[in-house]
Amino acid sequence: MTSEIEYILSKIETDSPIHAKKLKKNFAFFDEPYYDFTTPFLKKYLALLASENKTLDFAVACYLNMIADMNSETVAFFRTGKYSSTTFSEVNERVYANPEIMEYYMHGLLLSQFLWKHHYDSFRFFYENLPKYVDNTQNYLEIGAGHGLYLNKALSVFDEKTPFTVVDISQTSIDLARKFNTNNKVAFVVKDIFDFGDSDTFDFICMGEVLEHVEEPLKLLQKLRKMLTSGGTLFLTTPTNAPAIDHLYLFNNVQEIRDLITEAGFSIESEMEFPSEQASPEKIEKYKIAVLYGAFLKVK
C-alpha cells in the first residue's frame, strides 16, 4: 500500500471509522497491477491539487461529502424503491449547474477509483481490452468527462495521431478532465450529445457511467448507434441499484441493461459484472447490492 493511500485511509478513519473499515476490506483483493496503475496516477493527482493550493485533506473531505450524499440517497432508496430524482432538469439545476457540488463530487469520484474495488475492476476491464481496438480506430469520443481517468489511459494506448473528443454538459467536469490531460490533440467540448449532427461519427466511443444519469437511456443508445462508424465500438459502464444525487434511471438488475442494449440495436462483444460488495448472487439480488456492468458493444 502506498503512503498516499495509507494517509487517505487514515484521514477517512478519523472522520468515518465504519466506512474506513469497509474500504480496508477492498485492499485484500488488490493485486500488483493495481499499485502499478495507482502510484503514477495518484502522483499526477497530487500535482494537480498542489497547482490549485489544495491538499489530500481537501480531496478526502470531498470524498466524505460524496459518501454522505450517497448514504442519504441510499436511505431514501430503500424506503421508496426508487431514486430521489426523476428529471434531468432537476438534477441539472441542483448538481451539474452548481460548481460547488460538482467540485466535491468530481474529486470524490476520483478518489473512489483508488478505493472501490468495483471501480478499479471496471477500469482494468477497459484498459486490458483497449489495445485490440487500436487498428480500427481513427477517432475517439468520450461522453461524460468525469475525472479524466479513462481518457488518460486511452491517450497512452491509441496512436498519437488519433484525434480525441471529450464531451460533457458540465464545465466543472470538463475543466478537471482537461487539467489531467493537457494534450493538444484532445478537443474538450461542453455540449449535449444530442446536439451532435449526423455527420459526427466515431470509430470508438467510451461512455462510463452515463446511462443512469438520463431519463431515456434507450434514446441515448440509439443516438450513439448512429454516431458509430461501420465496425465501430462502444464501451459503456452503468450500475444497478446505485442511488446517488444525480442518478435518474434505475436498473434493477444486469439483465435489464442487456435487454436495453439489444433493443437499441447493439450486440455484446464482451462483458463483465462488478459487484460493489463481495456477496453471493442471491444476496446481491435480495439486498439490492449495486453491481457495475461493463461491456464492449458492436452495432448489430
Rank of each mutant, 00 (worst) to 15 (best):
T80I: 12
H147G: 13
L151I: 11
D31I: 06
A59E: 08
S112A: 14
S173C: 12
E282D: 12
F123Y: 11
I8W: 01
K22H: 11
S267K: 13
D192W: 11
E212F: 08
P275S: 05
N152F: 14
F274Q: 08
Y7A: 11
F188K: 01
K54W: 09
D246Y: 00
F114I: 01
Y83N: 04
K179N: 12
V75M: 09
D175A: 15
G265A: 09
D15A: 15
E103K: 15
L211S: 05
A47M: 13
F180D: 06
N129S: 13
L260T: 04
L149Y: 10
K219C: 01
P17T: 07
L250K: 06
I289C: 04
K288D: 03
A59T: 07
D69I: 08
D31C: 06
R124G: 03
E103N: 12
Y127V: 14
M227H: 13
L111H: 00
A76T: 14
S112C: 12
I205W: 07
Y287L: 15
D121N: 09
E256H: 04
S89N: 10
M272V: 15
N139F: 08
D246T: 02
P99R: 02
I284A: 04
F30L: 03
Q222K: 15
A264Y: 03
D15R: 15
Q171T: 05
I268R: 05
Q138A: 15
E263G: 06
F37S: 06
A244Y: 01
M272L: 14
A177P: 06
F188S: 00
S51M: 09
F180Q: 08
A97T: 06
N184C: 08
T86S: 13
G148A: 11
P33T: 01
I174A: 02
F188N: 01
F123Q: 02
K24N: 02
N71F: 14
P131N: 07
L56A: 01
T229M: 08
L218H: 08
V166C: 05
V75C: 03
M66G: 12
E142M: 06
S276E: 13
I289S: 02
N65D: 12
I67F: 08
P17R: 01
F58D: 12
F180G: 07
T237S: 12
P281F: 11
S199Q: 14
L64H: 05
I193E: 00
I67H: 08
G144F: 10
L115A: 03
T240M: 08
N136W: 00
D195F: 10
Y7P: 03
V157M: 10
R258F: 08
A290C: 15
G208V: 13
S89F: 03
I143P: 04
K179C: 08
A242Y: 12
S72F: 12
M102W: 00
V210W: 01
F164P: 05
Y249E: 01
F125R: 00
P281T: 04
Y249F: 15
V91T: 05
S10V: 02
L218V: 02
M106A: 00
Y45C: 07
N252V: 07
N253D: 15
K179A: 14
G108W: 09
K11G: 03
L42S: 00
L109D: 00
N92D: 10
R124S: 10
I174S: 01
E100Y: 02
K219H: 09
F37M: 09
